[in-house]
């Protein structure tokens, strides 16, 4: 079982979380073209190794987190809040 160290709640089982998706996508603006949106939502890299992905602590603090996880070993290198302001808060509190 993957264990995720939520910056707010501590280390918890992955069953408390919901998987989001690729955390590196820059979603285009709402008035962007169909082509840009197609690129953003349908094309994904199939990474072997570490990737940044979002997880929602849905049965916990309900924060969206960026998790750096290996798709091969499930090893997790880092967990941060998605929201940049909250990232700073967490950093400062370390």
């Amino acid at each position: 079982m993957i264990r995720i160290n939520c910056p707010y709640c501590g280390e918890r089982d992955h069953s408390e979380f919901s998987y989001g998706g690729d955390a590196t996508i820059n979603y285009p603006s709402l008035d962007a073209s169909e082509k840009e949106w197609t690129e953003a939502i349908f094309f994904r890299k199939n990474i072997k190794g570490f990737q940044f992905e979002t997880w929602h602590h849905s049965n916990g603090c309900r924060m969206w987190l960026v998790v750096e996880r290996s798709t091969v070993t499930h090893e997790i290198k880092s967990v941060k809040p998605c929201h940049p302001d909250l990232q700073k808060v967490v950093e400062n509190n370390k």
Binding site: G20, H56, W64, P81, C82, H83
Partner: peptide, 9 residues
């Protein structure tokens, strides 16, 4: 929550 925390921060 996803939109507010990840896209439209």
């Amino acid at each position: 929550e996803e939109l507010l925390q990840t896209r439209w921060t």
